[in-house]
Design a protein around this nucleic acid. Sequence first.
DNA 1: TCTGTCACG
DNA 2: ACGTACGTGACAGAT
Length: 617
Amino acid sequence: MQTFHHPVAGDRVTIRVPETTDDLGAFWEWLSKARARGPIAVDTETTGLRIYSTGYGLRTVQFGDAHDAWVLLYERGGEHAHYAREALRRCRDIHIHNAMFDWLVLDRHAGIPLENLAPVTTDTRILATLIDPRAPFGGGVGTGLKPLSAKWIDPAAPDTQGGLTAVFRSLGLTKETGWAGIPLTHPTFLLYAGLDVIFTARLAPILRAELERLSVRPALVPYEHTIARICAVMQRAGLLVDREYAEPLAGRLTEDAERYGAVAARYGVSSVNSSAQVADALTGMGERLTERTDSGAWKTDKAVLLPLADLDRDWQRIGARDPNPLADAVLRAKRAGKWGTAYAQAFLENADADSRIHPVIAPLAARTGRMSVTDGLHQLPSSDHIIRRAILAEPGHVMISTDFQAVEMRVLAALAKVRRMIDGFVNGGSEFDIHMFTAQLIKGAGATTKERKLFKGAGFGKVYGGGITTIARQTGAPESEIAQAVAEYDRVFPEIKRASSRWQRQAFQNGMVFISATGRRLPLDRDRTYSVVNYACQSAARDLLGQALINASESGLLDYCRLPIHDEILASAPREDATEIAREFERCMTTDLYGVPITADAEIGGRSWGSLYGADH
DNA sequence: TCTGTCACG
DNA sequence: ACGTACGTGACAGAT
């Protein structure tokens, strides 16, 4: 048996790696006693992050408490794997840092259903996020095991992930190949694998005490664990990619990008993604650029190029000038290039052997509590259906998208107690349109759709905390019009400004931390405290979605759920039951927030996600 | 690794 | 004193 010792916060901890049957017996004896004393910390090491890729493997499973860790060599199979599985089956109280990953690994590669593991898990990352949700670059300590251990346990806590990267390099491996390529019994690998569970075990009680000290609403802890389980089930299910559609699509987009790229090359732009080249060439053609980036370079983004190409925001000809052929080619080449590589090509590369994409869902990613999804499925173009067309419901199923109706405006009305807004939402019925309502409030019953658009822009400006200039730039309306609209907006909804001041004051008195409607801690940046209005709304809306997911799960809809998208649940359901299931999703997403109705609208599509978008929409 | 850009809610 | 658009992920090019 390999044994390691390491100092942790003045203690000498022990890491053991069983080799023989006797060693495994010793592990079993330790586990029985440790389980009787308290929770067991668990962690895994694997060949990488892409759990569903072919050839993926589980290398070690670690168990530990505050002083002892055991690293089981799962990769060896046989009795090593057997002991690891049996240990996991017996543990009724476990601590994991970032549990979703380990649940899914163990579910897929050790035959331990996440439905069994999730209910007995406390995720120390969830606890840490409820204390401070900010990433390191956002001013927080971060929610990684290393920074948390350094802050709460031992400033000398090793950077096990970063430290291993150095070991990988010394072995001629990279960050990507190292996890699979490092020898299973490499001492640093095993030491760090063991230390991770020891730090997790020590972190849990400290974080729990801190949550209590800060009076964080206790219900948030089980609430977030339930949402994590639900998101893990969706990640496991994944979404089906239509390879027969995506492959030629990727090819076509690449051809388009090359064709337009060749046009740009005629004007001296060899790579359309080089802003400097585009700026030089445009200036050389006599165009005058006016906007600059943060670092002082000429801006050549879409907002700059579209007018030069005589195109509006929807890429329709304006007829105001002769289109600049370079601006037009750059726009089209960049779009085709991005859609081809970031979407169509990415679908094909990210899909597993069963043509499924398993989006990595982070249920508590943003500082407001919002979820994030990697693999791009949160950012697919919505103006055109061609990209989403590549994502399919299950065979015999159709896509159902159920989204909250103007949820952030409803949340704003409820939280800021905006009297006339509340009246509108309460009395407005199912077809109520808050932005038209606002336009009519200000302009009278004859308000036009153009005026609706103006006040929609002003409304979003309010929720985001934007100023006149920015709202004007975003909406394309002249500043004078926006200034007047915002002033009128403030006149009919005066409660918003008052709530903003009140919330900023409360946050200031609470160490620059705003407490959300659900009891979430939302740290503010000192130099932009106005963002509290957005944080309050975005965060409460996220928790409405979280509760909707829990409702859906409790109503037996979880197996149909595929992806949460901020104010929407995307589902795949049998065609013959779609109407009934859609009504059920609407019911799960319908609620009341301080007297303001929160409503949802389900749309039943066809086999592909694209059927809900673009031309057919 | 940073900057700019572009996609979403 | 005043005013500030919010939150993400991914890719390409420059450094």
